[in-house]
Amino acid sequence: MGRWLLLFVLGVIAILMVSPLILTVFTSFKPTTELVNPPWAPPVSLTFEHYVRVWTEAGFSRYFFNTLVISAVDAVVMIVIASLAAYAMVFMEFRGKLVLRVLFLIGLMIPVTAIVLPLFQIVRGFGLLNTHLGVIFADLALALSVFVFVFSSYFVGVPKELHEAARIDGATEFQIYRRVVMPIAVPAVVTTALLEFLWSWNDLLLRLLLLTRDEMRTLSVGLLNFQGTMTRDVTGLSSGTVIMAIPVVLLFLFFQRHFVRGMTAGAVK
């Protein structure tokens, strides 16, 4: 009996947790005439009209594309630079390694919110305001530490003998990195790709500061502005929200195990 009660309570919690998302999806498909019905009533006749309207007229197609470009570039470049740096930190001997380790540790402590004012000035100084490149550099810098540590923790597990053997066989450092070490760190690559893509996709603050021209904007800023000007457009807002959520929800459902492992990796060891 206890088991069933437990299952029942958990079931209720699970339904409460997803219901805000389900209600939003319901609303996004409702014809305007059905808005008088309570939010938990499913749409009687489905309409895609709000999606079409938001996608074409409100510019969400462009926001979507901008967000996709920034997030994908972030993820790919992060994998490369974080793994290279982690390789140097783990396999190479050099002076100042401890200083460098502390420097990377500092990165784990810096809250983005606290340093956005000077960050804005630096991006402006490079002439990168209103460019995707400016946002990408900022994203990479602010999350780099996390992923250097993610890769390091995998690299440390590579058997020293394997590494030495490759070196004796005359392989260059880059060949060892490419052929020996990276294939072992595939889980770290997946974790990095997923988390960096997700963080980049979801961020508002940096994009709000660095992208002010409409054609450069991302979904987060686009949705914020849409909300500001079309406050009462419940159906439009719902479909905009769904458009923003769909890609990451799908990624999560496909790679749930990796997400969960990535999110807990830093926290529990």
Binding site: P20, L204, T241
Partner: peptide
């Protein structure tokens, strides 16, 4: 719990990946 554990866990963890901006829109409306 063993039965339906993954399903329940999925429902509870799913909101974690939703953008704070989307969370704001949803809850403002609610």
């Amino acid at each position: 719990v063993w039965k339906a554990r993954l399903l329940i866990q999925t429902c509870i963890v799913l909101p974690v990946v939703i953008s704070p901006m989307a969370v704001a829109t949803i809850w403002r409306w609610m």
